[in-house]
Amino acid sequence: MPWDRNQMAARAAQELEDGTYVNLGIGIPTLVSNYIPEGVDVTLQSENGMLGMGPFPTEDEIDADLINAGKQTITELDRTSYFNSADSFAMIRGGHIALSILGAMEVSETGDLANWMIPGRLVKGMGGAMDLVAGVKRVVIIMDHTNKAGETKLLKACTLPLTGKAVVDRVISNLGVFDIAEGGLKVVELADGVTMDEVREKTDATLVE
């Protein structure tokens, strides 16, 4: 069975290393914080200007001045610090964040990422994604292996406008875990019950052993 959203998030949480600073993107990546392994202490950055992001507030704790990069209300922790947007992106561009987990529309076999725009249809903007992929040490993508039309999102070359060139290190899809490697995508593991035949059928990118 392919992984569902929560299983993908749980698998992505295995990427977290103790004592690091991490940025989680909007959507499925946000769910990763629900699965941080026991004994692993990470500090979450929110690029609108916060280190040490806490859980959603209770009704009584809601504060309009305290939101994450997805504009959701959140809470602070004992370790929290706040800063302005230039300081926030200095952390990101300066290579101080260890890991960024993001969603994607397309990923190429050379690690190109497209996740911000569909020309003429969807014009929302890149937000902080271009900064994150350019500056963060390790970039992990969580996404479904195929789009709503059933077409693969793992391509030889991206067709949509890029967020960054050769920036992705690893892709966690509903079918498995794939690394950007010499010559193409290296299969790291498959979801339980998913076969290589299914992966081959649903992947345009070159697969390497």
Binding site: P55, F56, P57, T58, E59, D60, I62, A64, D65, I67, G70, K71, Q72, T73, I74
Partner: peptide, 12 residues
């Protein structure tokens, strides 16, 4: 007014 875009809460 301080309008909130995404009012996300957890159970107390």
């Amino acid at each position: 007014e301080k309008r909130i875009e995404q009012r996300t809460i957890r159970e107390a």
